[in-house]
Design a protein around this nucleic acid. Sequence first.
DNA 1: ATACATTTTAATGTCTGACATTTAATCTGG
DNA 2: CCAGATTAAATGTCAGACATTAAAATGTAT
Lengths: 251, 251
Amino acid sequence: MKIDPDSTVDLSAQIAKAIRDAIIAGDLIVDQRLPSEAELADHFDVSRPTVREALKRLAAQSLIRTQRGATGGAFVNRLRFEDAYAQQVTTSTLLLSMNAVSFDVACEARYALERACAPLSAARRTPDHLATMRAEIHRQGQPGLTDEAFCASDVTFHRALVDGAGNKVLSYQLAGAVEAMQPLMNMITFTARSREAIVALHTDIADAVEARDAAKIDATLVKLEAYTRELAHSVVTARAQKAAEKEHKTA
Amino acid sequence: MKIDPDSTVDLSAQIAKAIRDAIIAGDLIVDQRLPSEAELADHFDVSRPTVREALKRLAAQSLIRTQRGATGGAFVNRLRFEDAYAQQVTTSTLLLSMNAVSFDVACEARYALERACAPLSAARRTPDHLATMRAEIHRQGQPGLTDEAFCASDVTFHRALVDGAGNKVLSYQLAGAVEAMQPLMNMITFTARSREAIVALHTDIADAVEARDAAKIDATLVKLEAYTRELAHSVVTARAQKAAEKEHKTA
DNA sequence: ATACATTTTAATGTCTGACATTTAATCTGG
DNA sequence: CCAGATTAAATGTCAGACATTAAAATGTAT
């Protein structure tokens, strides 16, 4: 592991890269302890604060964890799916909000991915997954539910569908897509009638999952996608109209 | 933005979280300059090194960039899909290697996601995407190609297929799945005969994409998945046999 | 007045050395 | 043999200094 002190790149970034590469290459294995900060500083011929900045970079990516005390130090972290979820969701959310990704594009991606799970979920879902879906459907029918709570329940429902596929990699990939859309979905005000329609489609999906009918799940997801986009469009239209009225009033 | 100095959590982690939350909430917008390190240190009532560790954490997630000089400082970064790709691939690769995700599970996820793109790609692919696919097929037929180069070309081919769907979110999500599998794929030694079979299937896919025949793409991807898994199994079997022989020799 | 060279300045990058805090291992007395 | 005190080693934090960078301000000559 070496760095170039003459490079224009930050030393801490170079050190972080060197250690990261060693982890990816398998030279440092899970739970292995890195040398102490002082030893690393000595090795790379830099000061301790510089080493610490490098370690914090790695910690931000969940590649290492640190422990204080006598037998403490920095350890290579076993990257867990649960840890990766959070980062994936954060990144996806920011990508959507910063890159003016249209609702349609995000929606299309989400349902395309979800439909990819449909046949697997039909084959493998357990009673647990089904119970979660039914419970969320029931919650979604409760009057007095806020839009945010309705959306959160929607996310849980869809994650149960995805988790039913029994493939951790798929669940991980989809967590980003589904949850990242939540802020966009929260912009939609769900009327009693639209909630009723969504709950009906959710019920169809749950029934199809119970019957292990992949084609039916797929078809219903297509319907749900179309309806979601329709709702979003009406929101956009209403907002534009409101803005126009306001404009008219000021003029 | 406040932190709790009595918490057991690192101050730098708390500060990073506070700033990250502000970015996510939109309180800090793209290209906006953060206060200088000295000002942040003053605001949070900590020392400059502590602030710097926090900023390095954010930089590791591409949430900010720093610039030196008179008008320098830390700026909120516009998170680009390209920047996110790299992190996504690193994370996915480590998840697969550290969590003993079986080849079958990863393979299943990859092809499920890819098949989700098939109908969109059939509808939207441009001549460019098609040209890339044809070029990679040609490369894959060249004799003397290393296994690594063959795999790299395979990745490029599949990414062209995915990019053909014309949905950035899908491309982003899939980049992780496809590229993360490359290390696993590199373990497979491709015989002349297996390469021939793969190239034939790739050609079928390219033909179907050209004809905008979604069903045909889907069907061929199913075949390719089955063949890939078959190849992987034979590799595993061969390796187990070799290990058994070695065991026998030592005994 | 303008173009170019120089100086200033404000910021990040880095270093040194110190102290605080945490935690496990070790020592010590009952 | 065990419980408490001590020690040691590591990370966490701080203070202050200097190095480096790059833009802006200033000065100067044409």
